[in-house]
């Protein structure tokens, strides 16, 4: 599904060049659940941005279903994200002035769904994540775990085949963490691919494959070692 070929991403900072990714090659197949681990600043988020079509590599290529992501136009990449990719963020990134159901409606609205179809689908998804009684609550009226579940419902709105998650349990208490990881596992069991950047060993244990990022280089890490 995803293929990274000799990808380098370099940043210029105060006259110095920092390589977040250094000639990295990686293959991600269909229906994989991958945990990307590594210390802060190791390039985990950079890799997620590259996979999400939001940051062009300095060199190398990123292929999605055999097609070069960064040879597409900006609008084409945006539409691909809308149709095929779902994002989960550490800080949930809900729009603070929209209710739970309206937040879930956002991707549906961007996809041009009718108001009634948006309502129906968003209610269904919020019920699925156990928030049918919180449809009209603002994010500030929800706990952090509930906010992340709203964000998960939003991720599923356009039924994406790939979910890119950036520290999805980073801000959660143990109970919410478990709920969120169970939901992500459920999404994976439905045939979706999940690529999750995390520091959380508990979260990483839910993955079926683990990758470590060290000094801009990706290496496959045995799950047993990772879990230990």
């Amino acid at each position: 599904m995803f293929q990274l070929n000799n990808v380098t991403k370099a940043y210029e900072c105060r006259g110095q060049t920092v390589n977040a990714l250094n000639k990295t090659s990686l293959s991600i197949g269909d229906n994989e659940f991958i945990a990307v681990v590594g210390p802060s600043g190791s390039g985990k988020t950079t890799m997620l941005s590259l996979l999400g079509g939001m940051m062009a590599p300095t060199s190398g290529e990123v292929l999605f279903h055999g097609e070069s992501l960064y040879d597409m136009s900006l609008v084409e990449r945006t539409k691909l994200r809308l149709r095929s990719l779902g994002f989960v963020f550490q800080s949930f990134n809900l729009v603070s002035w929209l209710s739970a159901i309206e937040n879930v409606q956002v991707p549906l609205s961007l996809a041009g769904e009718s108001a009634s179809a948006q309502q129906e689908r968003a209610s269904e998804l919020l019920s699925r994540v156990g928030l049918s009684d919180r449809l009209n609550h603002l994010p500030s009226e929800l706990s952090q775990g509930q906010q992340q579940r709203v964000a998960l419902a939003r991720t599923l709105a356009n039924d994406p085949r790939i979910i890119l998650a950036d520290e999805p349990t980073g801000n959660l208490d143990p109970e919410s963490r478990e709920q969120v990881m169970n939901l992500l596992s459920e999404f994976h069991s439905e045939g979706r691919s999940v690529v999750m950047v995390t520091h959380d060993q508990f979260a990483a244990q839910h993955a079926h494959r683990s990758l470590s990022l060290v000094d801009g280089t990706i290496v496959d890490t045995p799950l047993a070692t990772n879990a230990a």
Binding site: G52, M54, L74, V75, T78, K79, R81, L82, R83, F87, F89, N93, V95, S96, V106, P107, L110, A111, R154, N158
Partner: peptide
């Protein structure tokens, strides 16, 4: 900024 970035990540085009 973050809200707009999120909307764009979710599929909002620059035109939108």
């Amino acid at each position: 900024r973050r809200e707009i970035g999120t909307l764009m990540a979710l599929g909002a085009t620059p035109g939108y």
